[in-house]
Every structure is written in structure tokens, then in C-alpha cells.
Design a protein around this nucleic acid. Structure first.
Lengths: 192, 192
DNA sequence: TAACTTTTTGAGTAATTATTCAAAATAATT
DNA sequence: AATTATTTTGAATAATTACTCAAAAAGTTA
């Protein structure tokens, strides 16, 4: 019973990187071979298909994202401040050189028309994220307002993932968020 | 001097349909051949490359979108009511069977990492849309608040383009929009 | 060490890809 | 009708695609 010699986590991390940047269609198995060092046979033995590898990459990515949100919101001084921290981190990320949006959002848009199982997976994970925010906001604002603000927050997060691709959009985006999410405890940035 | 026999508008419309649904990478020239009835040689003679055809499709799509926004906002009773009409139309569209988001948004997300010229084109057109909304909102709210609300509106529009893929999200999305864009003249829907 | 099980290898496959081009067809001009 | 200019054709091309499989290597157990 020989066990896999390659580091599965490492291979998944490198696959996430590749698929996240290029999307499903534009990423070839040959690129995976190059990125991971695995030979085609090993990839198919371990993951079954390109779709199988993509699915596992997407799942791990989503799981990490959900855990990150929970961790930040559980340790922040307040839920509102935690959300602000998460949003600010998204803004920061969008200023990075190789900004790439969100893997789940990109997958949902790319594969919606194909009716792919991967689209369903991405959608399910995005719904989980909304449900997670909702569970926190309900505690703060009650059932109805919590749900409403969770939806509003998701609209803004999705919006950022598209808007953020523009260079130098950080400050503008920050102002737009403050305009649309006035119930969050924004900190004063530039007093003038 | 023989002139083209095929209807360029018709070919572009069918190309928009195909590219919009499948994206750039997942649309093949053979699919274009099938969808338009043109032979490969004709396509390359008329548009130069797959990218050339995609570019022209994207440009026409964007132009139609910009014109539609102007027309609605120019004829609406007020700018606010016009924007509400446009948003409501987006919500309605998202409930359609083959909802497909926005061609510009999809292109921006798909081709950002590739540093493609098509990404630049999609971004430029999305910026034009924001500038158009800004020009209207400035008249209503002044320079600074107009700009801020145009950004907020764009974040919501982008957000809808992602959020809307979920089935049965219409009512929830409507409430989220009302929460984030309270300065718009929303009409009462269900009194209870 | 030997027998056994599982993983890895990497050349190979059939299908699909974007693109080309010489020849045929078509339209405008003479 | 003849000439010229342009478009259309569609089979062919070289490259790339996702994926396979028999053999070799490696780990586990006896």
C-alpha cells in the first residue's frame, strides 16, 4: 500500500493559484503539470479529471475564506468593526499588482451558462458566506434587519470584486462603501 | 468592388450572444461558424481574428448599454426614478431562465489576469458607464455627493451582476438595494 | 528479502483549437 | 461582355487540448 509521495496541500495551493488567475477554460492540464511538477498520469490518478482538481481547489479556497471571516469576526472588538476590517483588507488587496478578484465570484460568472456542477458549487459556497454574515448580523440587528444588511453587505462585497480591478480605485471605493453601508463603524481616515 | 453580402449587425448580434454566454476562452471559432453561418475564411477576412470579432461585439454591446441608460434617464420623470427603473429592469433580467450577468463585467473578470487588450476595453467601457451616471447625479446632488453616489450605485450594479445568478433572489436583492441606496425614490411594492 | 499493492511515469491518442490560402463566386466598373 | 476588385469558400494545417495506459518505481507487509 504505497501512499502518495506528493504534498496534496501544496498541489492544491498551486492549482488554486493557477485556476484563480486564468479560470477553468483558460487553464490547461499542461499548465497544471508545469505549476505543480506532477505528471499528467499522477494528476488524473489523484483527482480524476481537470474538473475534479478544480472542484477540490475551489472547496479548499472557500473553506479557508469562511474560516477567515469567522476568525476575524469572533476576535474583533465588535461585529461592525470586524466587518470593516474585512472590507478594508479587500480594498487593500485590490491595490495589489496581480489582483484577481475572488475565485468563487469568477467561477460563478464563468461557468453559469454552462450549467456546470462547478457553478453550483461556487454558488453554494457564496451562499454559505452570506449565511455566515447573516448569522452574525442577526445577533446585532435582529432577524429582519440582519438579513437585509447581510444582503446589502454581499452586494457591496460582490461589487468590490468587480470594481476593484480598476487601478487607483481604493479611495473612491472606500467612499462608495461608506455611502452604502452607513451603519458600519467606519473610522475617520483623513481629518482635514 | 464587391461589398460584403452578410449582414454585419446580424453577425455581431449573434457573436455577442455566444461570447456573452460562454466567455472568450470557451467560445470557439467553430461555434461562431455555427452561430453565424459564416465560414472561417469570411470571419477572418472581416474581423481579422477571434479577438477582433470579440472586440467589436463588446464595443457594440457597450454602446447599446450606454445609449439605453441615457435614453431612460433623459425621459424619466426624475433621475432618481429613472435609476430605479434601470435597477428594476436588472432585477427582472436576473430572474430570466438564461440570465447571464453583464458582458462587460464577465469580460473584465475573465481576462484581467491575462492583461488582455479586451480587459482594458471592458474596463474603459465600465468607466464610461460610471462617468455617465456621475454626470446625471452631479446635477441632482452636486459634485462631491454626486460622485460618491455614482460609485455607490456602480458597486450595487456590479453586485447585482454577481448576486443575481442565484435563483429566487429577486425580492431579497430588491431589499438589499433599498438598504444600500436609501436616497433613491423607491416605490412601495407590497403594502401589508 | 520477497511478495504485493499503490503511485508515478511520460510518451501517446484522438479530438479540438485558431488560423490560412488558393480557388471560386460575386459585384462593380469599364 | 470583359475586366477588375473584393468577398466567400471550405478543406487543410500545425498547435494544443484533456486524457490514457502499460511499464517502472516506491512503499508496505510478510
Amino acid at each position: 500500500m504505497a501512499k502518495p509521495l506528493f504534498d496534496r496541500n501544496d498541489v492544491i495551493d498551486k492549482s488554486i493559484e493557477l485556476f484563480w488567475h486564468n479560470g477553468f477554460s483558460a487553464s490547461s492540464i499542461q499548465q497544471v503539470v508545469k505549476a505543480t511538477g506532477l505528471k499528467p498520469g499522477s494528476i488524473y490518478h489523484a483527482f480524476g479529471s481537470k474538473e475534479g482538481l478544480f472542484r477540490e481547489s475551489l472547496e479548499i479556497y472557500a473553506q479557508k475564506g469562511l474560516m477567515h471571516i469567522s476568525r476575524v469576526l469572533d476576535t474583533a472588538p465588535s461585529i461592525g468593526e470586524g466587518i470593516c476590517m474585512l472590507l478594508e483588507k479587500n480594498i487593500q488587496a485590490s491595490t495589489q499588482k496581480n489582483y484577481c478578484g475572488c475565485f468563487l465570484v469568477k467561477t460563478r460568472l464563468e461557468l453559469a451558462a454552462a450549467g456546470s456542477e462547478l457553478y453550483e458549487l461556487a454558488s453554494a459556497k457564496l451562499n454559505e458566506i452570506e449565511a455566515l454574515y447573516e448569522s452574525y448580523l442577526e445577533k446585532e440587528f435582529g432577524k429582519e434587519l440582519g438579513r437585509q444588511r447581510a444582503t446589502s453587505l454581499m452586494l457591496h462585497i460582490f461589487g468590490m470584486r468587480v470594481y476593484g480591478y480598476r487601478q487607483k480605485s481604493a479611495e473612491r471605493m472606500r467612499q462608495g462603501l461608506q455611502e452604502g453601508l452607513p451603519w458600519l463603524p467606519w473610522v475617520q481616515r483623513n481629518l482635514k
